[in-house]
């Protein structure tokens, strides 16, 4: 019993173990110094998944049925708006960043209004709003071929002692969010609501306000991801958010956060993001085709959720 509880509490460790095993296999296959290069690349790319993953984690933790499907649209929208406003100029960086955050705020607000006023399940609410947001992004950013301001591009790709600076920043950010989750009124409230919304309300928690903060937080992080990602990849593209729908949910689930709500883990998101990227890298180095790669990615997610499933509240 105790060892079982221990493992179920530390389920997120497996994401790091998985990441390490996959990395080891890749490193042995390519041999030599290639292994470190793989790690730094993985850190760069995983960073973006982690940013949106953290937002998605808070949303999912508020309980069954809560999930943010508007993340990809928000990424594209925020990226397009920021690029167009900054127009490649360093001086406009703060304004571009503010605009990007404003995009996130608007989307988050809109999502919450749909959920609260139209009383639609969050899945459908965020899905419908993502249609609108994506269209806005497409219409606004049509033919957008604007390079990011050099400063942003430099920051997004800079390395310190070979380690991506952005990754370091986001690791620190993850630490902060972990503290927010475990040591603030907000974080505790999210965890309580996820376990039992009714009990949380009866224990004096303002459930609606917490849900509002959570959807806004998720949208803000998606906007941040869009902003940084356009700096990293030399400009915004309209489908740059696409892969983050599954990725954001997958890293949350693989990282040991319970889909049933009430149990979340921030470090696990890093482990899971590294695992997901390293897995693709490994399959690539093994020369596996794109089809097999997709199938394995999908099957791993289904397998993890099947194993992790069942931890429903005892009713």
């Amino acid at each position: 019993m105790t060892s079982l509880t221990w493992i179920s509490q530390k389920a997120w460790i497996w994401s790091f173990v998985g990441a390490f095993v996959v990395w080891l296999a890749t490193a042995l296959y390519i041999g030599g110094a290639g292994g470190t290069a793989v790690i730094t690349t993985a850190l760069s790319f995983a960073t973006f998944t982690v940013i949106v993953g953290i937002g998605q984690m808070f949303v999912i933790t508020t309980g069954p049925g809560n999930v943010d499907l508007s993340i990809p649209a928000t990424i594209s929208f925020s990226g397009a708006v920021a690029m167009k406003i900054m127009d490649g100029s360093n001086a406009m960086l703060p304004i571009g960043f503010a605009a990007s955050m404003a995009c996130g705020l608007v989307v988050g607000l809109f999502n919450y209004i749909l959920i609260r006023i139209l009383r639609i399940p969050p899945i459908i609410a965020t899905l419908s709003s993502s249609f609108l947001v994506l269209s806005t992004a497409i219409a606004y950013g049509r033919g957008l071929k604007i390079k990011p301001p050099p400063l942003l591009a430099e920051f997004a790709t800079a390395r310190l002692l070979g380690i991506p600076v952005l990754a370091i920043v986001i690791i620190l950010f993850a630490v902060v969010m972990s503290v927010v989750l475990n040591r603030t009124m907000y974080g505790r409230s999210v965890l309580a609501i996820g376990q039992n919304q009714r009990a949380a309300w009866l224990a004096g928690i303002n459930v609606e306000r917490i849900r509002f903060y959570t959807y806004v937080l998720s949208a803000l992080l998606a906007a941040l991801c869009g902003f940084l990602l356009s700096g990293f990849s030399g400009g915004a593209s309209l489908n740059m958010g696409q892969e983050y729908l599954l990725a954001s949910i997958a890293v949350v689930v693989i990282g040991g956060t319970s889909v049933a709500g009430g149990k979340a883990n921030v470090p696990g998101i890093w482990g899971a993001a590294m695992f997901m990227f390293l897995l693709v890298t490994m399959l690539n180095t093994f020369g596996v085709s794109a089809g097999i790669r997709l199938i394995l990615t999908g099957l791993i997610i289904v397998a993890v959720i099947t194993i992790a499933g069942g931890d429903k509240p005892p009713r």
Partner: peptide, 26 residues
């Protein structure tokens, strides 16, 4: 059987379907 959230399962399966489709018709 496992009382799973269908949206996560089907989201995962969407990759599987896509992968098989790519294998059949690259």
């Amino acid at each position: 059987w496992r009382n799973l959230p269908s949206i996560v399962v089907t989201l995962g399966m969407s990759f599987v379907w896509l992968g098989i489709a790519v294998l059949i018709l690259p």
